[in-house]
């Protein structure tokens, strides 16, 4: 028995199945891929569900036999959702509303991060504590007085209501971006900056000509993440922009109401009533721009940590 177990062929088979020091066995590889696919499915399933529901015709929706494979490609839901969302307008608004504060927030966060990383001054731990506080304090603890102030100034519904805080480093999740820049400036060598200083360059000049170009990845990553987070932020935008401009997520959150304005329930036939297929089309149209950005710029998302030189602290 012992002899058979240690036969060279059995040994090699065991190596293939269970792996050796040098390489992984088939069992491990199979288990790894099974788990990866299962987890991948968890993430893709809602998207697939959303997409498939959105192309179902009213007949398919009622048919209990049709689950994952619709009988036809029906685009009527998208046409309705497109109209209800007022897509071209809200899309442009969303892009502007999320990119403008992001740009300013990134610029200011880099200034602050650079100041914290390169200069010694009293009270730095306090600044870090306050940064953490701005991250932790729930928005509803600060939003009402801001809203009332904006109301008095006539800024409610104006994009300035989101731009002003971003301009002063208090935008949505600004603290994270300050920390990103702090980390990436601290990991950059100081030599160039010091020699420029000896040559008599001013602090701002050093910042703009040496520090900014060398931290370019941090700028790109911050800008992308900031844009996505602003796009997805609905609590602040709903409060500050209500009655003024309308973004895509805002329009999505009042989809039912908007739909019934366009297609009054009493007057349209049963196939034009609001159903989950139209709602899913609306949801899909809402995340479509994000998906496009994600797949085009995916390298910047998945490698963001390596690119900004964040070390995890």
């Amino acid at each position: 028995m012992q002899q058979v177990l240690h036969h060279p062929i059995i040994e090699r088979l065991r190596g293939l199945l269970f792996g050796s020091r040098a390489r992984r066995g088939l069992t491990f590889t199979a288990a790894l891929y099974a788990l990866l696919i299962a987890i991948g499915f968890v993430y893709l399933q809602p998207l697939l569900f959303m997409f498939i529901t959105s192309i179902k015709s009213p007949n398919d929706l009622l048919n209990p036999m049709v689950q994952w494979v619709p009988t036809e490609l029906y685009l009527g839901n998208y046409l309705k959702a497109y109209r209800v969302l007022d897509y071209p307008n809200t899309l442009v608004t969303s892009v502007l509303i999320s990119m403008t504060p992001s740009l300013l927030q990134t610029a200011v966060a880099s200034l602050v991060g650079y100041g914290l990383a390169r200069y010694r001054f009293w009270g730095k731990p306090l600044i870090f504590a306050l940064l953490l506080a701005t991250f932790i304090i729930p928005p509803q603890n600060t939003v009402i007085p801001q809203m009332l102030t904006y109301r008095d100034l006539g800024l409610l519904g104006n994009p300035l209501a989101l731009i002003l805080p971003a301009l002063m480093g208090q935008g949505f999740r600004s603290a994270i971006f300050v920390l990103i820049f702090y980390q990436s400036f601290i990991s950059l060598p100081k030599v160039l900056e010091e020699s420029a200083r000896l040559d008599g360059a001013s602090d701002l000049r050093i910042f703009f000509t040496i520090a900014v170009p060398s931290a370019l990845p941090a700028y790109i990553v911050s800008f992308i993440f900031s844009t996505v987070w602003y796009w997805n932020e609905t609590f602040l935008t709903a409060i500050f922009l209500e009655g003024g401009v309308t973004t895509l997520p805002m329009q999505l959150s009042r989809f039912t109401q908007a739909y019934e304005n366009l297609y009054p329930p009493g007057t349209v036939n049963i196939f034009d009533r609001l159903n989950e297929a139209v709602k899913m089309s609306g949801t899909f149209l809402n995340i479509l721009p994000l998906l496009v950005i994600y797949f085009v710029l995916q390298r910047w998302f998945v490698e963001s940590v390596e690119m900004t030189g964040i070390t995890g602290e």
Partner: peptide, 25 residues
């Protein structure tokens, strides 16, 4: 797989999650 696993970073927003939960997804 990496692209799939980081999808939540882009999609997790209030209204989208709300619609998905309402549909049982």
């Amino acid at each position: 797989f990496r692209v799939i696993f980081f999808l939540p970073i882009v999609i997790t927003s209030g209204p989208v999650i709300k619609e998905l939960t309402a549909q049982g997804a």
